[in-house]
Simulated assay, not measured.
Amino acid sequence: MVDISHKRHIAKSITWRLVGTLDTIVLSWIISGDPFVGLQIGMAEVVTKMFLYYLHERAWFKINLSKDGKILESRKRHIAKTFTWRIVGTMDTMIIAWIISGNPLTGLKIGFAEVVTKMLLYYFHERIWYKINFGLSERKK
Rank of each mutant, 00 (worst) to 15 (best):
W60G: 05
I71P: 00
W98R: 01
I99C: 03
A97C: 04
T93N: 03
F83G: 09
K62I: 05
I87V: 15
I95L: 12
D68L: 11
I63A: 07
I71H: 04
P104M: 09
I100T: 02
S74M: 06
F83N: 10
K81Y: 04
T90E: 02
G89N: 09
W60C: 03
I99S: 01
G102R: 07
F83W: 15
E57P: 01
M94L: 05
F51I: 15
K76I: 08
G89M: 07
V46K: 07
K62H: 06
F61M: 13
I79S: 10
M94R: 00
I96R: 05
F83A: 15
R75H: 11
I63R: 12
K76V: 14
A44C: 08
F61N: 04
L65Y: 05
G89A: 13
L72I: 04
R58M: 12
E73G: 13
S74E: 11
F51C: 12
V88L: 15
E45H: 01
T82W: 03
A80L: 14
K81S: 15
W85T: 02
Y54T: 00
T106C: 08
I100W: 01
T48H: 00
T106K: 08
H78S: 14
Y53N: 14
A44F: 06
K81N: 12
I63P: 08
T93V: 14
G102E: 13
I71R: 15
K49I: 06
I71S: 07
A44R: 09
T93Q: 12
F51R: 00
L65F: 10
G107R: 05
D68I: 11
W60N: 03
T90W: 03
W98T: 14
K67Q: 10
L108E: 04
L55A: 13
A97K: 00
S101Q: 05
L108H: 04
L72G: 02
V47F: 13
E45S: 10
T90P: 03
E57I: 04
R77F: 02
F83H: 09
K81C: 12
T90R: 07
I71M: 14
